[in-house]
C-alpha cells in the first residue's frame, strides 16, 4: 500500500510522521519526494547507497538546417522558443521537455540533448528501503526528479511512504498521484487550519482517501481538530507537543527506534490508518 504524507507548509511534521511510520511498518519503502530540501536520509542514514542522475531532454537547434519557418516557436505553449536574428533561441528554464518542437520541425533541425537536473539515491536502513532525490540548485521544477523516484519498485504487500514536499503545487500533485491514501499533518493553530485546508482541497480534488494526524497537540483548544470535526475529516491520531520527542528529532534520530513509547504511538497511528483504509475499501465495494 502506498501512502502520501503532506501538509500545506513546511515544519508541520511530514518527515517525522513519514520516517517513523516507515520505520514502524517493518519491511517498507520510504520515498523522500521533497527534492528541493530532502531530509529523510538524515534520519535513516542509509547504507549501500546507489546514485543515478536525473536528466531532462532539451531542444537543440541545428542552425544550418533551420529555415526559419517558426513552426516550433508557434507550437510551444510555454513560449520557451523565440526566433530573433534569423535563429531560434531556447529558454531552457521555461522548456517543459514535451518534445513537440522535435516532432514538428519539417527540416529535422531540432534534436534533443539531455541535461542533468538532479540525482536520486537509494539505500537501506534496517528493513526500510530509503529512496530520495535532490534537485540541483537553480533548476525550475522538481517534477522530473519525483517521476524518477516513483519508478522505484514498490511491493503492494508492504508499506510505501511518500514524504511529500510542502504546499499543494505541481510537485505535491505529482507525489500523491500514485498514492492509495493521504495523511494530512496539521498544527494546532489558526494558521495550521489554513494550511490544512490547502491540502484537504487538493486530496479531495484528486479523489483520494485521507485522514489527519494532529501534531504538536497541547492541552488546550485545537483549531485544526475543530476544523476536522466540522468537515468530517477522519482523525488518525494525535502526536503531543513533547520536548523529548523534539529533542530526539532534532538530533536526527528516529523516535520509534529510540524509545518504545514512541514505537507504541506510531504503531497505533499505523493501525488506525490501516483500519481507515480497510473501511474505505469496504465502503467503496458496497457502492
Amino acid at each position: 500500500m502506498k501512502i502520501a504524507v503532506l501538509s500545506g507548509k513546511g515544519g508541520t511534521g511530514k518527515t517525522l510522521v513519514s520516517v517513523n511510520l516507515a520505520a514502524t511498518a517493518g519491511q517498507s519503502v520510504y520515498i523522500d519526494c521533497d527534492v528541493e530540501e530532502p531530509d529523510g536520509h538524515l534520519f535513516f542514514k542509509p547504507e549501500q547507497v546507489n546514485e543515478k542522475n536525473v536528466t531532462v531532454p532539451l531542444p537543440f537547434i541545428n542552425s544550418s538546417l533551420c529555415t526559419g519557418c517558426r513552426k516550433c516557436v508557434e507550437f510551444c505553449k510555454f513560449n520557451a522558443l523565440a526566433f530573433v536574428n534569423n535563429r531560434v533561441t531556447v529558454f531552457e528554464e521555461i522548456c517543459h521537455s514535451c518534445g513537440g518542437c522535435v516532432l514538428l520541425c519539417p527540416q529535422k533541425a531540432v534534436s534533443e540533448r539531455e541535461k542533468t537536473i538532479g540525482i536520486i539515491r537509494q539505500g537501506s536502513s534496517g528493513n526500510v528501503t530509503v529512496i530520495g532525490g535532490t534537485l540541483n540548485t537553480g533548476e525550475a521544477s522538481g517534477v522530473p526528479v519525483i517521476k524518477e523516484l516513483l519508478k522505484a519498485p514498490q511491493a503492494e504487500s508492504s508499506l510505501t511512504v511518500f514524504d511529500c514536499p510542502p504546499g499543494s503545487a505541481c510537485i505535491v500533485m505529482e507525489s500523491i498521484k500514485g498514492a492509495d491514501y493521504c495523511i494530512l499533518v496539521a498544527e494546532p493553530t489558526v494558521f495550521g487550519v489554513h494550511n490544512l485546508n490547502m491540502v484537504y482541497e487538493l486530496v479531495r480534488l484528486f479523489g483520494k482517501s485521507y485522514g489527519v494526524i494532529l501534531n504538536k497537540c497541547l492541552r488546550e483548544e485545537n483549531p485544526a481538530e475543530n476544523y476536522c470535526i466540522e468537515k468530517g475529516i477522519p482523525i488518525l491520531g494525535r502526536i503531543p507537543f513533547d520536548t523529548e520527542l523534539g529533542a530526539i528529532n532534532s538530533v536526527a534520530e528516529i523516535a520509534v527506534r529510540a524509545k518504545s513509547k514512541y514505537h507504541a504511538l506510531f504503531t497505533s497511528l499505523l493501525k488506525k490508518m490501516l483500519e481507515e483504509v480497510r473501511d474505505e475499501a469496504a465502503a467503496d465495494s458496497q457502492r
Binding site: V73, C76, K77, F78, N79, A80, A82, F83, V84, F91, I94
Partner: peptide, 18 residues
C-alpha cells in the same frame, strides 16, 4: 496575445514586437 500565456509571456510579447 501573450497576456494570457501560462508562462513565458515576456518572451512571446517580445517576439511580437521584434
Amino acid at each position: 496575445s501573450a497576456a494570457a500565456s501560462q508562462g513565458g509571456a515576456g518572451i512571446k510579447a517580445s517576439q511580437a514586437l521584434v
